[in-house]
């Protein structure tokens, strides 16, 4: 995937390895990965369970730290940041979409979407405007006051996407965003992600094991046993 002609890479990984210790045995999850992701890319990373897809996504999000190597995302080298600085950085640059939606059940759809904005200096009115815009974008403007338990799985995930984009992050990371959805809802979410990439120019990295989902991305890369398959 490394393309010398590319400008403005949003993600740049250099010799990244990640090793876990399980029962006294060292398990290599990521093996010496080096690649860049240019701005505005919609990339799908595929691979079987345990191939290291989610670990790679978490490393890019600053949720997990590599054992060695450097990770530069949105112009910031992540491996030197403290937990607090990492959280601050993540609030500015990363929108994260979870497989299991992970909405806060005691907050309404609008309040869930507003949550990341609590970390900004926006006024109440500005926050409300951002929330409305995000929910309108995902087609849930009429469900603002519904609690997660009052929404279908597909709608919950759309709220999750709205929450990921509401603070206008540099990049959206989606971990199996359609893994818990039926075909129709999954298509809706993938269409939404493709629109965000196409119309708003968002850089999106999606991890999936579903080939149909991956087909919606501009680029597909396979991760096998910790190694990223390079384009032929």
């Amino acid at each position: 995937m490394s393309q010398p002609a590319m400008i403005d890479p949003v993600v740049s990984l250099h010799n990244v390895t990640k090793t876990y210790s399980r029962g006294g045995t060292e398990v290599s999850v990521l093996k010496d990965l080096s690649f860049v992701i240019p701005a505005g890319t919609f990339l799908a990373i595929m691979g079987p369970s345990g191939s290291g897809k989610s670990t790679l996504l978490n490393v890019m999000a600053g949720i997990d730290r590599p054992t060695s190597g450097s990770v530069v995302v949105a112009g910031t080298r992540l491996d030197g940041l403290s937990e607090g600085d990492m959280a601050r950085w993540r609030a500015r640059h990363i929108g994260y979409v979870f497989q299991t939606y992970n909405l806060i059940p005691v907050l309404t759809a609008a309040e869930n979407v507003e949550l990341p904005l609590a970390l900004t200096h926006l006024s109440r009115r500005e926050r409300a405007d951002h929330v409305k815009t995000a929910l309108r974008l995902v087609g849930l403007a009429d469900r603002m006051d519904h609690y997660p338990r009052q929404l279908s799985g597909g709608q919950e995930q759309r709220v999750g996407v709205a929450r990921a984009i509401v603070s206008d992050p540099t990049m959206i990371l989606a971990d199996e965003p359609t893994g818990n959805l039926d075909r129709e809802s999954a298509d809706d979410i993938l269409t939404l992600l493709a629109r965000l990439n196409r119309e708003l120019g968002k850089t999106i990295v999606m991890v999936t094991h579903d080939p149909r989902a991956a087909e919606r991305a501009q680029m597909i890369r396979h991760l096998e046993k910790g190694l990223l398959e390079m384009p032929p």
């Binding site: 937990e83 959280a87 994260y96 992970n102 609590a118 970390l119």
Partner: peptide
């Protein structure tokens, strides 16, 4: 705990 993990993912810090 998981919700707090989600909040940390969104950028909330331990003090929050």
């Amino acid at each position: 705990t998981r919700e707090y993990g989600v909040m940390k993912t969104l950028g909330f810090q331990p003090r929050h």
